[in-house]
Design a protein around this nucleic acid. Structure first.
Lengths: 334, 334
DNA sequence: CGGCTACGCTAAAACGTTTTAGTCGATCAA
DNA sequence: TTGATCGACTAAAACGTTTTAGCGTAGCCG
């Protein structure tokens, strides 16, 4: 069963294709189509269940009402939650979202950008990785709205929305120090992205501000794509061999692995061993004792992203890049 | 900067559009284009960075190399994990995935189907809800490959991939009984979908098989879209007012809420109070004590879905609907 | 009465591909 | 010599829309 086309409707209504198109697009009044014809055509459309072919539409108009969202990994709860919020908000404004994960692979990221480009998405929301600066610059040069989030790319002049990682990290470490902790570890990843570096810088600066000497041996950089088992082993090694009374995990999945590691070596979180995780997770609230965490304001981030995108879409000319840094919240538990 | 079209390439290479198209689509040999021309054109394409406009392609060929994935909620870890696996596997076979969440709204589900339809996706993977049978039937009538997963729709004759919810639930309850539990509660939702009903049936049957009388008061049906606070309150009420020594949560988010509820009223999970969650979650492994869970074999489900889809896509005629039920695994912890 | 504008509608071009049905010359078998 | 086949390529239709330009009639102004 072939699906209906505008032509079928035109024939049925005994009017021209043009007329039907005007009616579909709400230009009937403006183009002075008579009330009678409008009603007749609308009735036929209704009855036949005709839906315009969006592909033909896109081909003709050059836009798609689709926003492309490129993230690191949809199965990470930070991203899946933000994706959901963005999807929701975009949907309410008449936009659809297509998303896809890069898995931190430069090649896949490039491919995704190309795919979105050849599908003529109207705008791009990207949590980028180093190595795709050129591709992003090309999108910008072609006049596409692009918003980076979560991580910024300093070499390229785009709008960006993200949390204040430096301060959140600084504040976390400060809270440890205020509790009298001295030997504070940082478990982070080796991916070379801004927000991870900022968290590291915040850690360092807080130590310095309090006259505590930075010790390289207390910082563990986990290789990004490795097996969880190995991660756990490395973390255990850190905790068993060093004198440590507090630790900041730079991502929520590291914190999860870290908590598993602690559990296995039977080291308890508590007054004499503090833990803070960056990015909250359901498991932290449930853990005994409950784990403190830095919460990124997801709702606000999503809302800001959508606002910036819509601004850019509705303005003809290019808008100046805008950076929005949103404070993160340290939630102290138990 | 307008993007290049096949015509630009043709002009540059001084050949016809047709020739370029043949080369792009690997039909050069078959259409006996000379080696020299092939090389020349390929070089020009390479240098200019030309990418075919997929929209025009789709319009002409009627397919898109895109598979539409419709799920309940991307921020639920079960779905986001399966989405990631499906995306990955599809990607390796040259297909892209577009996904979107229904939020259990019939209207949104219908809209999504229409959106995918008008974008001419090649196939549909849907975790359906009751009320969209007709829409799915229409997709089938139009000859589209459709695979349902997670939940089946008995009124419509589609392929389906899902876990064996009845047995998993039965087995869970049986394990409680084997431990000597007598008053076993079930916390489930009121959404009227097959897999939830099967879990309920498994619960009932296991009690019956062991000569335990089914007690309506031990079954709590949580309204789907309600606030978490209310859910927690209801669960607390259940536990405080009834004599209960074990509970099966029918979804992982209910289990999360349930554990929060238990924590607040300071009821400990342990030998005299057993908990099993349906669908595993990182929080369960980390909980003290660790929480047992029914694991759906995500990897296998994703793989099976993709296989069925590809089979249908590559066979011309319609294939008979196929139901694949995959056993779930009860993981007993601590 | 001639020229304008408004009304109600439509023909046809354009968007960027794929694909069918050729064309034109050269080679080949009979 | 002729008809068929092959090699190398191409013109043009088609996919389903949107949109520009325009057509014929009627009413109105001066």
């Amino acid at each position: 069963m072939k699906s209906l086309s505008i032509k079928d409707i035109a024939v049925k209504a005994n009017v021209s294709i043009t007329t039907v198109s005007f009616i579909i697009n709400g230009k009937a009044k403006e183009k002075s189509i008579s009330e009678a014809v409008i009603e007749k055509v609308e009735k036929i459309i209704e009855e036949s269940g005709y839906k315009p072919n969006q592909i033909a539409r896109s081909l003709r108009t050059g836009n798609s009402n689709i926003i492309g969202l490129i993230i690191e990994d949809i199965s990470n709860s930070f991203f899946s939650r933000i994706a959901r919020l963005i999807e929701d908000k975009a949907y309410k404004r008449g936009y659809k979202i297509i998303y896809s994960s890069t898995e931190n692979s430069i090649d896949k990221a490039k491919e995704l950008i190309n795919m979105f480009k050849s599908r003529k998405v109207d705008a791009y929301i990207i949590s980028p990785i180093k190595g795709i600066e050129e591709d992003i610059q090309m999108l910008l040069d072609d006049g596409n709205p692009v918003i980076l989030f979560d991580r910024n790319l300093s070499d390229v002049n785009t709008s960006y929305v993200g949390a204040d990682h430096f301060n959140a990290s600084h504040q976390s470490i400060q809270s440890f120090i205020d509790q009298g902790k001295k030997n504070i570890a940082l478990v982070t990843t080796d991916i070379n992205v801004e927000q991870i570096i900022e968290r590291y810088d915040g850690y360092k600066k807080a130590l310095e501000d309090n006259g505590i000497k930075y010790d390289d041996k207390l910082v563990l950089k986990i290789h990004f794509n490795q097996e969880e088992g190995e991660t756990i082993a490395q973390i255990q090694e850190l905790f068993e061999n060093k004198k440590i009374d507090a630790v900041l995990f730079a991502t929520n999945y590291l914190a999860i692995s870290g908590l598993k590691a602690l559990k296995q070596i039977n080291k308890k979180v508590g007054d004499d061993f503090g833990v803070i995780a960056y990015d909250d997770h359901e498991a932290f609230e449930l853990h005994t004792p409950r784990i403190s965490a830095v919460q990124q304001p997801l709702e606000e981030i999503a809302e800001t992203i959508i606002k910036l995108i819509l601004n850019q879409l509705s303005s003809k000319g290019k808008l100046p890049a805008e950076e929005v840094i949103i404070p993160a919240r340290l939630v102290i538990r138990d």
